[in-house]
């Protein structure tokens, strides 16, 4: 009896120590996250008025805020759909681009450290002001003078590469128009994609290095070609990390999408807190839904080594 009691206390003691270790976070989570999420939901159902002395009063308004956001607001629906569409377009592009680059950078070559450093630079320089200035500089470099020249060429109808010609060529090859447009869009936004895939490349490199070398040896001995090795060994082994990367990409691209700006403006410029909460909540729910669906989709096809 006594022995049993002592055993109980040891596990209990361990549990209490564990709770003590996570205590700061637990308080913070309950105070800032759980409470805030609850408050956000509460704000969406109420009209919020800030009292002059500080504090606020809530008047229950039912689903008015939701109805306003979806029926009457000038740009919310449009901004939401473009944000989601952009995200859906970007996610596969970023994932595959970063997998491809990780495959390239995983091999040993001269100056690999330098190249990796360059690829990771966008993660370091992700400040809002810096990115804005970089976008402008990019436009100046690709646009500016050369832009004017392109316009000239267009009006004169001579010289330069005719994009239309290639589109038509691929179209007559039987590629569906949607695919061509998708690829063209990807090419046009190549710099955004490259800049958004720094962390993903690193994650994939780490994933590639965690694949046991014996697998490749076996594949080689069995006479697999490089192509087969990629699809039968590398890709399945990397598959679980695709989920990590997709989650990261979705969260990252949503964090600086237009919906966030709109919600921020609605709250702090127009002081419409209820509406802003609706926007935040709806966009978050949409993001989470997308995450759940995509993860389910990939997980079904994923292969887990362990």
């Amino acid at each position: 009896m006594k022995k049993k009691k002592r055993k109980m206390t040891l596990t209990k003691k361990r549990a209490i120590t564990g709770y003590l270790f996570i205590m700061p976070w637990l308080i913070g989570f309950l105070w800032f996250y759980a409470r805030s999420l609850f408050m956000t939901v509460q704000f969406t159902l109420n009209v919020l008025e800030v009292r002059p002395g500080g504090g606020y009063t809530l008047t229950f308004a039912g689903l008015d805020n939701f109805l306003y956001a979806f029926r009457a607001h000038a740009s919310f629906k449009q901004v939401l759909t473009t944000s989601v569409a952009n995200m859906l377009i970007d996610v596969p592009l970023i994932t595959f681009f970063s997998l491809f680059m990780a495959l390239l950078l995983n091999k040993k070559f001269h100056g690999r450290t330098l190249v990796r450093a360059i690829f990771f630079l966008p993660v370091i320089l992700n400040s809002e002001a810096i990115t804005d200035a970089m976008d402008l500089a990019r436009n100046m470099m690709s646009g500016g003078l050369s832009n004017a020249a392109a316009e000239l060429a267009e009006t004169a109808g001579s010289g330069g590469v005719s994009v239309e010609y290639y589109i038509q060529m691929f179209g007559s090859l039987g590629l569906p128009m949607g695919v061509i447009e998708y690829i063209m869009g990807a090419v046009a936004r190549i710099s955004e994609i490259i800049n958004a895939s720094g962390v993903q490349i690193i994650i994939f490199i780490a994933a590639l290095q965690s694949i046991p070398g014996s697998m490749y040896e076996v594949a080689k001995i069995e006479g697999a070609t490089g192509y087969e090795t990629f699809w039968k060994v590398t890709f399945p082994m990397v598959m679980p990390h695709i989920i990590t990367n997709v989650v990261y990409t979705v969260v990252d691209s949503f964090a600086d999408s237009e919906v966030v700006d709109l919600a921020y403006d609605t709250a702090f410029t127009y002081n419409n807190y209820g509406l802003s909460s609706v926007m935040s909540l709806v966009s978050t729910v949409v993001t989470c839904l997308i995450l759940v669906i995509v993860c389910r989709f990939i997980q079904k096809r994923a292969f887990y080594y362990n």
Partner: peptide
């Protein structure tokens, strides 16, 4: 609780920005 950590990663901070603002105001 660990799922809550993952939720913290996934949920964009802007969802809770208003309540945070209110909390600290």
């Amino acid at each position: 609780l660990f799922a809550c950590v993952v939720i913290m990663i996934v949920i964009p901070t802007h969802t809770i920005m208003l309540p945070l603002y209110m909390t600290f105001a």
